[in-house]
């Protein structure tokens, strides 16, 4: 699959920041403004299926780790969310996986890249889900609607700063203050010198 690496790095120059892994786990990191073009080129080169599109909120990555564990936050300055487009090249006649590729892109604030729903129609729902859960907007979809939650819902629950049990009921008792959930760090026995 080194052909893919060459094609990407040569064809797009700086827009492809890195390319790592091999086989099933290969992943490319691209700039958000070029994401759509790269994805279009990949689709033309045979990646006919968008297997998944998801995001990760890296704002608390590596914080409050237990002693002895270190992890550096890979997020560049000013970025918090990383989108992952997971592509697959499926041989339609023999039903074999000819290649898998994850395309990551770090986005600035909550401004996502351009939509790819015209390339793969299932991106429509996936992008709506990402807006719903993370509050990431896609640049050419200004009026995007929520998918899983209701329009009255305020906030985006999969952001790390949204408390898991902050409820916003449509009917029924209002204001149940979110209870503090104990984290592992709270319960870890501490040795006081």
């Amino acid at each position: 699959m080194s052909g893919l690496r060459d094609a990407l790095t040569k064809g797009f120059g700086d827009a492809v920041l890195s390319f790592e892994g091999e086989g099933r786990d290969q992943a490319a990191l691209v700039k958000p403004e070029a994401a759509r073009d790269v994805l279009r080129a990949l689709k033309d080169s045979g990646f006919n299926m968008l297997v998944d599109l998801t995001a990760v909120d890296f704002s608390r990555y590596g914080q409050d780790l237990p002693p002895g564990v270190t992890a550096t936050n890979p997020a560049p300055e000013g970025s918090r969310f990383r989108l992952t487009y997971r592509l697959m090249k499926l041989g339609a006649t023999e039903g074999l996986v000819l290649g898998r590729l994850a395309v990551h892109c770090w986005i600035v604030d909550d401004r996502g890249p351009a939509s790819v729903k015209d390339l793969w129609p299932n991106a429509d729902w996936l992008e709506r889900e990402i807006w719903d859960m993370f509050g990431v907007k896609f640049s050419d979809r200004p009026g995007i609607k929520r998918l899983l939650l209701y329009e009255e819902f305020v906030g985006h629950p999969l952001r790390k700063d949204y408390p898991i049990n902050k409820r916003q009921p449509l009917i029924g008792p209002k204001d149940e203050r979110p209870r503090e959930r104990l984290t592992g760090a709270d319960l870890r026995p501490r040795i006081v010198p």
Partner: peptide, 13 residues
């Protein structure tokens, strides 16, 4: 399911 999306018992409704 003690979370943001689940009704905590239907007897609240």
């Amino acid at each position: 399911y003690d979370d943001y999306s689940t009704v905590q018992g239907i007897d609240t409704i």
